[in-house]
């Protein structure tokens, strides 16, 4: 059992933050590595972030519609 964090990734030069559009998984859901967990939006793109590991979603740490800085932990998965 280990805790794996999903962070807001680097999104390119200028971009320092992004908006959480929607979570595609809930706390308690099983996810496999590479599965999409959350949709985010920057001024230029909308993209889905994938689970960094297989396991169970333990925590979702930000809210939908929240603007989040690059590097912020968005979710924790227990493997």
């Amino acid at each position: 059992m280990a805790r794996v964090e999903l962070r807001m990734p680097e999104l390119g030069n200028e971009i320092t933050e992004a908006m959480i559009d929607a979570f595609l998984k809930d706390v308690g859901d099983e996810v496999s590595e590479g599965e999409e967990i959350v949709t985010i939006t920057t001024p230029k793109v909308t993209m889905d972030l994938e689970a960094p590991a297989s396991g169970t979603v333990l925590e979702l740490l930000v809210e939908e519609d929240e603007i989040v800085a690059v590097g912020t932990v968005l979710a924790v998965i227990e493997t």
Binding site: M19, P43, I67
Partner: peptide, 10 residues
């Protein structure tokens, strides 16, 4: 406002 919160030129 942040461009994520307000209508931008784009």
């Amino acid at each position: 406002l942040s461009p994520l919160k307000a209508i931008t030129l784009r």
